[in-house]
Design a protein around this nucleic acid. Structure first.
Lengths: 253, 253
DNA sequence: AATCGTCAGTGACGGATCGTCAAAAAACCT
DNA sequence: AGGTTTTTTGACGATCCGTCACTGACGATT
């Protein structure tokens, strides 16, 4: 009656292997350069087997996207362990978001593509559900942070705004700034490197000041906070992302 | 020596015709559904002729994007004629942006795709230059608005921020909020219609309050402003975008 | 008027890609 | 060992991109 039931763990491992290879290809050839045939060539399975895991190329892309969201959730958790005010910890989360975007620009942009009709329509139910669940895992901690800020009296909810809206508006701001900058390397006259980072934090600080999330930016030096976040929470990642001074211990100048 | 010289105006007209057909296809089949063969089928020219105008499918996409930016620039100009404070007029520009996104979601998303390497690498020099020039035509008026606000004393430049950064951060905020919402119809639990609009304006108002652009949102009812903008400047477009109450004169209830 | 030279236009074709499916191989059961 | 069910395979049809050898239209020249 049941000749062989495929080991579920083995299946998941293979799925991860496929996602990893897909990501490798995308890092060199871009999203448009990802081809099922290329994946087949790099992997000991045939095309048919791959299509047993992913219903289409788009389904595979959503898989890569979900994998990225998963590591991002991990970064968010770490960010929230920062020792500081709620506003500083929110900044830490945004810094994590920025790091992720710098280290994995392809995956970062994938999040918006995944919401496109042409992608989501061709994505399997299962993976779509996984996607929503991951969104929750990203939003959840930030909602809790807002709660905490409210009970701490560091934030009072602006008129007719919900906690969800607070989180959304912060996310949207970071996303927009990063998305517009990340694909403008050396195009619009001279913004690069540190400018990138400061745009994101200018935006975040203006927004947080606007909603009166204390301490306001004139009451506290948030540039210092960002440096502390980079050094204490994300030294490795900051170094990789092009801020070598934050890496553990470089030969001092 | 010169058997036949192609009329330049005729060429431009044909190019526009091709862009229009491409846009029509994209409206029904999505960006991914745009195919050169489909364009050929709808047009009295052969594939070779089309490739005389556009070096690749991506070049055509950039052409469609540029056309969208051109009408957006027109909307911006109209928005700036609103009779009100500088901050109200900036809101009008953002409202124009929102309208454009609602009416032409495909073209709206194209702006970010156009910055992707896979697209810009395959776009002709000519059209790339046109693209940058259009960016200028969008940014220019907003820079002038910031200038005006500064001389009016309605805005003082925050520490270490340039006028360009002010404009960028506003643009990024609107872009992020719209981009995240526009592809979430009925997915994330219940946001729709008016919620869409209010998210964008919550974000803009928080940001503008944060940079102390007067009058602040507690000093003035900006919901009223938005309604005035919709009625006085964009009645037709607002109606099309799903706010029928703003259309010129409906049979009153 | 006949001929020639130039250039826009054409569409069949090569190469690449997606996703399928009939058949082969492998695993399991008795 | 033989039979049954699951899994894998890769050749194949369909689609799409972009090219290029060819066609034909038009003006210039004789």
């Amino acid at each position: 009656m049941s000749p062989r039931i495929l080991d579920n763990n083995q299946l998941l491992a293979r799925e991860q292997e496929l996602i990893d290879t897909a990501l490798q290809i995308m890092e060199t050839d871009g999203t448009a350069g990802l081809t099922m045939d290329k994946v087949v060539a790099r992997v000991p399975y045939s095309k048919g087997t791959i299509y047993n895991h992913f219903t289409s190329r788009e389904d595979l892309l959503t898989g890569v996207c979900n994998a990225g969201m998963s590591v991002l959730a991990e970064l968010f958790s770490r960010a929230l362990t920062f020792n500081g005010t709620t506003r500083e910890r929110l900044l830490a989360v945004q810094y994590a978001y920025l790091l992720h975007a710098l280290l994995q620009p392809t995956q970062f942009m994938l999040v918006i593509s995944a919401k496109t009709a042409s992608l989501s329509e061709r994505t399997s139910e299962r993976r779509q559900a996984e996607h929503y669940q991951l969104e929750g895992r990203l939003m959840g901690p930030m909602l809790k942070l807002v709660d905490e800020a409210i009970t701490n009296r560091e934030l009072v909810l602006p008129k007719q705004m919900t906690k969800q809206q607070i989180v959304f508006t912060n996310w949207a701001g970071s996303f927009g700034a990063i998305a517009l900058l990340i694909n403008s390397e050396g195009k619009c006259s001279g913004r690069q490197g540190l400018a990138f980072q400061s745009e994101i934090f200018n935006h975040a600080n203006l927004l947080l000041d606007g909603m009166q999330w204390h301490p306001l930016s004139h009451e506290m030096d948030y540039y210092k906070s960002v440096e502390r976040i980079a050094q204490e929470i994300f030294p490795e990642e900051s170094a990789q992302a092009g801020n070598p001074q934050y890496s553990q211990r470089m030969k001092a100048n």
